[in-house]
């Protein structure tokens, strides 16, 4: 029954519908890469800088690798990086924002300052420094993106917690004897999480872009195929081999749009519902 309801909501929201369809395509591409990829993306063939043709649908790069296969395998990297980094940012943001908003006082002061510091920091350069210092493994990249992008989530959750703590059911839970920690995890966070879910979805897109940028600058993980890397390699062939950059770039755009659509759709679907919960009866 819940599934039916979810499906109905997705069907009624165009953005969500299109976004979800695009997400399914992305997932299939990533999952089935070994099956559908026409070539092994790591094999260097003799056909270098070949324009798109029947054998190589999207052409080959300077080392003779098939672009289509690289893009399919690159989807895995992008999705893993995007989801992990966004999850890290979501969890940190929710926890810190929840603590700050619900407990208030000194805790709010300290976390508020942390938020301010992170907002002022040029995040991308911080990431560059960390990657330069600690190496550019995929793990490092994911963690550092997550650790630097939680601020938006924290601010959202803080505002949510601050308005929720005024609600009667939170006071009621307090007076019935629930501990502050229990209230935070049982009432505040679950009731205030919806905007964070929407924001985290958009965060996936941001993380994918950041990872691509790092790879483009040559700071990506050299052991995995990623879209940013394809573009970086293709950049020197921009005049003779436009297809390298263009198709990888399109893949990035496609993914980013997917997550923006879903995030925005979720935002529209979830927030009015949240606002109306409690009020439905009186209306």
């Amino acid at each position: 029954m819940r599934l039916n309801k979810t499906l109905k909501i997705i069907k009624e929201n165009t953005q969500l519908k299109v976004g979800c369809m695009m997400l399914v395509i992305l997932f299939l591409a990533a999952l089935l890469a070994p099956v559908i990829a026409p070539h092994n993306p790591n094999i260097l063939s003799d056909d270098m800088v070949v324009a798109p043709n029947m054998k190589y649908w999207l052409g080959t790069d300077g080392l003779g690798r098939d672009i289509l296969s690289m893009i399919l395998y690159g989807a895995r990297t992008s999705l893993v990086v995007g989801f992990t980094a966004a999850m890290i940012a979501g969890i940190i943001g929710t926890l810190l924002g929840g603590f700050a908003g619900y407990f208030g006082g000194r805790i709010d002061g300290v976390i508020g300052e942390m938020i301010n510091i992170f907002m002022m920091m040029p995040t991308f350069f911080l990431i560059l420094i960390v990657v330069a210092l600690f190496g550019s493994g995929l793990f490092n990249v994911m963690v550092v993106i997550g650790l630097t992008t939680w601020v938006g989530n924290a601010k959202l959750m803080r505002a949510q917690a601050m308005s929720l703590r005024q609600r009667t059911f939170i006071k009621s839970a307090e007076s019935i004897g629930e501990s502050r920690m229990a209230i935070l995890f049982k009432h505040i966070i679950p009731n205030g999480i919806f905007p964070i879910i929407a924001n985290t979805t958009m965060g996936v897109a941001g993380a994918i872009l950041t990872e691509s940028s790092l790879a483009f600058l040559g700071l990506g993980d050299p052991n995995v195929i990623s879209w940013g890397q394809i573009i970086q390699n293709g950049k020197s062939y921009l005049v003779d081999g436009w297809w390298m950059c263009v198709f990888a770039g399109l893949a990035i755009i496609f993914t980013v749009i997917t997550f923006y659509l879903i995030g925005d759709g979720l935002n529209r679907v979830l927030s009015p519902k949240l606002r109306n919960l409690g009020k439905e009866v009186r209306g």
């Binding site: 009667t168 019935i176 004897g177």
Partner: peptide, 19 residues
């Protein structure tokens, strides 16, 4: 202590977690 003192709130529509 919470057991010994209890409160009934003004707004019954918002006294319980909606979920």
């Amino acid at each position: 202590f919470r057991r010994t003192t209890q409160m009934i709130f003004q707004n019954p529509f918002d006294t319980f977690d909606p979920r």
